[in-house]
């Protein structure tokens, strides 16, 4: 039941997280910024519209947005309850989760290539570059969690971590969180990997892949992007919440605070950093992988 609450609140509040990020950036720039609920207005507006489709496209272009959203929702369904119900999920569910996200990526990349636009091809090419490098970092990070908690499912992993594990292997867990955060920035096309605001086709990754989408399809994509950020953020927040070691009520109480913090953190990173040049972004992702490996080595050492 608490899991269901977390899942549904995630579905409802995901666009709000983006609002927090936007407001943080505005605060850094000394502006007031868009209202917190702007994303919801945008979604409603898009859902009410008709659509313009490129004549080059095939059924893939119509299927991809829906598929990506469904996959993201199921990812949320796997991740959200894991902090409160240790029995949730099955052994290896996080691998399945990443495979599902890969499926969504296959279709979004294909739908970008479907239009025949060279800009969208460019975005697609960069998307696969980032994903190829971020996946090892993520999975090795999960390897650390498996090692420290001794469990193989998301629910079991978070359930198996407690203050004892944090005392003995806290450094490793913090490093995993850092690595996850870098992956979060890459997977959700945030600065320093991608600037969601430039609206210059040559520089973007995610936004440029959906240049030809419009109307309800674009609403699905926008909402899916917000939810994806929520899922990745909750992976990190859940990890830190285990240090509290409290009841599920406590978890639910602290969870929004954690999410707010991640939102502000993303906004802060976006305000104090410039977008890296495209040639340098792989180094950052390789760095995330290196941090994951370091965390793993430390975890084997601490838990001997």
């Amino acid at each position: 039941m608490p899991g269901l609450i977390l899942f549904l609140s995630g579905l409802l509040l995901a666009p709000l997280l983006l609002g927090v990020t936007v407001r943080t950036k505005a605060a850094f720039a000394g502006r007031r910024g868009a209202p917190l609920f702007q994303q919801y207005h945008d979604l409603v507006k898009l859902l009410r519209r008709g659509q313009v489709m490129s004549g080059t496209t095939t059924f893939l272009f119509r299927v991809a947005p829906s598929l990506a959203l469904v996959v993201t929702v199921s990812a949320a369904a796997l991740v959200a309850p894991s902090i409160v119900s240790p029995g949730w999920g099955f052994p290896g569910d996080f691998v399945f989760l990443l495979c599902l996200l890969g499926l969504a990526r296959f279709f979004t990349v294909s739908s970008a290539l479907d239009t025949g636009s060279s800009f969208e091809g460019m975005g697609a090419s960069r998307e696969v570059l980032y994903s190829a490098l971020s996946e090892p970092a993520l999975l090795i990070g999960f390897g650390v969690l498996v090692r420290v908690s001794g469990e193989m499912s998301l629910g079991g992993m978070y359930g198996g971590l407690g203050s004892g594990e944090w005392l003995s292997a806290g450094t490793a867990l913090c490093l995993v969180a850092v690595s996850f955060f870098i992956v979060l920035l890459a997977e959700n096309s945030r600065i320093p990997f991608d600037d969601p605001n430039t609206h210059l086709e040559l520089t973007m990754v995610h936004e440029v892949m959906v240049l030809d989408n419009s109307g309800p399809d674009f609403a699905l994509i926008t909402y899916g992007a917000a939810l994806k950020l929520w899922v990745f953020a909750s992976l990190i927040v859940n990890l830190f919440l285990t240090a509290l070691g409290g009841s599920s009520f406590q978890y639910i109480a602290w969870f929004p605070a954690g999410m707010l913090l991640v939102g502000v953190l993303v906004g802060t990173v976006e305000s104090v950093m410039a977008r890296l040049s495209l040639l340098k972004t792989p180094h950052l992702l390789a760095g995330a992988g290196a941090i994951s490996v370091l965390a793993f080595i430390l975890s084997t050492r601490f838990l001997q």
């Binding site: 340098k280 792989p282 180094h283 390789a286 760095g287 992988g289 290196a290 490996v293 370091l294 080595i297 050492r301």
Partner: peptide, 17 residues
């Protein structure tokens, strides 16, 4: 290159452990 250097760093770390 930087990525290769990072890889070398990881290898050095594993080797030292």
């Amino acid at each position: 290159g930087y990525t290769t250097s990072l890889l070398a760093g990881v290898l050095a770390l594993s080797a030292s452990f």
